[in-house]
Computed example of a mutant assay.
Amino acid sequence: MSPAADAPADPAGPVEPPEALRAAVEALAVRRPTLVCLDFDGCVAELADDPAAVAPVPANAAAVERLAALDDVVVAYVSGRPLEQLRALAAPPAGVLLVGSHGAEQDLGADAAPLQLTAAQRRTREQVLELLEELANRVDGALVERKPAGAALHVRAVADAAAAEALLVEAHEAAAAVDGAHPKDGKMVVEVPVVHATKGEAIRTLRRRTGAAAVFFAGDDVTDEQGFAVLGDDDVGVKVGTGETLAGHRIAAPSDLAGVLAALAARAEARGADAPPRSTPTRPGAAPDA
């Protein structure tokens, strides 16, 4: 059963998006095919101290299902999560593309292949794990998450805010000195992949593979800025939460995302009666582009 079906619907309905954002997504939805890229943690799902204890906001899950059912819309999760963990926690409907580990892992259809680290990358990953675990053992509440493409140090459960920030700074600096490691700062986390990949590169790949005429991307974290950076004038970027951003629009929290996705879906559904799509988006099982 999908996350949307596990919880009762909100009788108040989704939060209405700001007028400028509504106008932007309605204009974007006219362009076809439309690619809808979504970060998971802090965007579709609320953040949690335990990385394994999250699930999509029910209204967001329902909106994703609605969009995924449209023939000329492609939905993709673009996340720092390991691919299999993303699949398990997001429980995406059929047809949704998955990008994990900031782009290092991708399930884009029939040609999906597991991540294969080189011998050098495996050695670097072990070195990073040892380093982060040593640092985490010094501070109560710090947690190391093992990932196929590297590791992450989480401090969301650390009670002392100053100690948490100091630990993140130390972890980033130490990881940066490891040959082949690529530390990335996030919200209360330092990600250290051993494969160079960014969400911006992933979105470019998705755009090319799907033939998208326009891209919507929503994200909340520092690493999502690389995704916002590759968007064009006809695309729409939405920052979830506070902080400096390259995105053209902002909403306050994951609970506000459903209204934005609903507005996009409603316009995309309405356009179906206007004219046939200009091209057919690539979906799982379709032949890749040349």
Score class of each variant (00 low, 15 high):
2 S>G: 15
6 D>W: 11
6 D>H: 14
9 A>Q: 08
13 G>F: 09
15 V>C: 06
22 R>C: 05
22 R>N: 07
23 A>D: 07
24 A>C: 06
27 A>W: 05
29 A>D: 10
30 V>D: 06
36 V>N: 00
40 F>G: 02
41 D>N: 07
41 D>H: 04
48 A>I: 08
49 D>C: 12
50 D>C: 13
59 A>T: 13
60 N>L: 10
66 R>W: 08
73 V>L: 03
75 V>S: 07
76 A>C: 01
77 Y>F: 08
77 Y>N: 04
79 S>A: 06
82 P>Q: 06
84 E>M: 10
84 E>H: 12
87 R>L: 13
90 A>D: 10
93 P>D: 07
95 G>I: 10
98 L>P: 00
98 L>F: 03
99 V>M: 02
103 G>I: 14
111 D>L: 14
111 D>I: 11
113 A>I: 00
123 R>C: 12
124 T>R: 10
127 Q>K: 15
127 Q>N: 12
128 V>M: 12
133 E>K: 14
133 E>G: 12
135 L>R: 05
136 A>N: 08
137 N>D: 11
137 N>S: 14
139 V>Y: 06
143 L>D: 06
144 V>P: 07
145 E>N: 13
148 P>D: 11
150 G>C: 14
151 A>K: 15
152 A>L: 04
153 L>C: 08
156 R>A: 08
158 V>S: 05
159 A>F: 15
159 A>I: 09
163 A>K: 07
167 L>N: 07
167 L>G: 03
169 V>W: 15
169 V>Y: 12
170 E>C: 11
172 H>M: 11
172 H>W: 10
174 A>P: 15
175 A>R: 10
179 D>I: 15
179 D>C: 14
184 K>Y: 09
187 K>Y: 05
189 V>T: 03
191 E>W: 08
193 P>E: 13
194 V>K: 13
196 H>E: 13
201 E>R: 14
202 A>S: 01
207 R>Q: 03
211 G>N: 00
212 A>T: 01
215 V>A: 05
217 F>S: 06
220 D>Q: 03
220 D>L: 00
220 D>P: 02
221 D>F: 02
222 V>P: 01
223 T>I: 03
226 Q>Y: 05
226 Q>M: 13
230 V>C: 02
233 D>F: 11
236 V>S: 02
236 V>A: 02
241 G>F: 05
241 G>K: 00
241 G>L: 06
242 T>R: 15
243 G>H: 06
246 L>M: 15
248 G>Q: 08
249 H>A: 01
249 H>D: 09
251 I>R: 00
257 L>V: 04
264 L>Y: 08
265 A>S: 06
266 A>E: 14
268 A>D: 03
269 E>T: 12
271 R>A: 09
273 A>H: 11
274 D>Y: 04
276 P>K: 04
282 T>F: 02
283 R>I: 13
283 R>K: 05
284 P>F: 03
285 G>L: 06
286 A>R: 02
289 D>A: 11
